[in-house]
Design a protein around this nucleic acid. Structure first.
Length: 322
DNA sequence: AAAAGTCACAACCGCCAGAGC
DNA sequence: CGCTCTGGCGGTTGTGACTTT
């Protein structure tokens, strides 16, 4: 037999809060606080709500220091960084749970096992002024989880990998001081090595929208070379990754410069809401919806100050005015 | 214009930890 | 020591708004 519920669900109001209820709760709270007991609060305040519901409404919405509205890129990065750190604990907990089951020959309900795998949203939220754990959790589940998965998939795919595109990308747009564009009539195959084993990936146009353009973020130019470095503090969360990018001899390649988990390929994550970030066999792309139709770009950014280069004699690149 | 699909987020649910008795 | 109760937490659901077909 389970626990008795904290309140009689038949006698309390549920669902969205009305402005009047919000006012009642705020007024009561301003005068008396919780009175040390959330369960008794609704009765004292004259609200037909469960005490837990009142508590959640106050903590997640009515508190004066709550910050409403969209998350900034800086907040995105904080969450991603903290999730990465805290996420390592998931392995420990899930693994130990697994061994508890094996060694003890005990049968734990699946839900109990899953409960051992916790994320500590409140810890992450405590680093973001005015954000609640519920905010962070919702935001993670709807947006950032996808972003993180793309990053992990890409890092996993290209670790110890170099890729050769065919046909060769060619310059598609006039270079500017900030960016240059490369493109092809459509990448049809990608030859690459994974852990020293040669691989060929053939794209299926029905499954993978073919890359048309690659955008290379650029900060410093010298004769014949482009240097890549961090372009935005908002991308600092990626700084533990150390990719190198090069475009030379008719192909594009990239590789991690570190070891283990820190290897990876960096993509620029734009804040433009009209841009969806997608991954295909060739990398992560930002699908920009333009007035003239869809245009797919790849945004390569090296963030750790690693210098890569483009061979200007191959037609990929022309001298760029500073 | 309408239906279907997707997204964002408020709210709920069930469980656990710890305090108090 | 064991029980009850409350606060707190993460997972999940419900629903309205928005977008796409």
């Amino acid at each position: 037999m389970g626990r008795a519920p904290c309140c009689d669900k038949a006698k309390v109001k549920r669902g969205p809060w009305s402005p009047e209820e919000d006012t009642t709760l705020k007024t009561y709270f301003a005068k008396y606080g919780t009175g040390g007991n959330w369960i008794a609060l609704p009765h004292k305040a004259g609200l037909k709500r469960c005490g837990k519901s009142c508590r959640l409404r106050w903590l997640n919405y009515l508190r004066p220091d709550i910050k409403h509205g969209g998350f900034t890129e800086e907040e995105d990065n904080t969450i991603l960084t903290l999730y990465s750190n805290i996420g390592s604990r998931l392995v420990v907990h899930s693994t130990s749970s697994f061994f508890i089951i094996l060694i003890g020959r005990a049968t734990l309900p699946l839900k109990n096992l899953l409960l051992l795998v916790f994320t500590e949203w409140s810890v992450i939220a405590s680093h973001l002024k005015g954000r609640t754990d519920n905010d962070v959790k919702n935001y993670w589940n709807t947006k950032l989880k996808k972003k993180m998965q793309l990053m992990e998939n890409m890092a996993s795919t290209i670790t110890n990998t170099s890729c050769h595109f065919s046909p060769t990308p060619t310059l598609q747009s006039a270079p500017t001081a900030d960016s240059i564009y490369f493109g092809t009539s459509g990448f049809s195959t990608m030859n690459y090595q994974h852990n020293s084993v040669a691989q060929t990936m053939v794209s299926d146009p029905n499954q993978f929208p073919l890359a048309r353009l690659m955008e290379v973020q650029e900060q410093v130019t010298t004769s014949g070379y482009s240097s890549f470095s961090a372009t935005s503090s908002s991308q600092e969360f990626l700084s533990t990754l150390s990719p190198q990018i090069s475009l030379e001899n008719g192909y594009a390649s990239w590789s991690g410069s570190g070891g283990g988990e820190e290897e990876g390929f960096i993509v620029g994550l734009g804040s433009d809401p009209s841009a969806d970030i997608v991954m295909d066999g060739f990398g992560i792309h930002e699908k920009i919806i333009g007035a003239g139709g869809d245009m797919t770009t790849i945004n390569y950014s090296s963030l750790a100050g690693n210098v890569s280069h483009i061979n200007s004699s191959l037609g990929f690149y022309q001298s760029v005015a500073n």
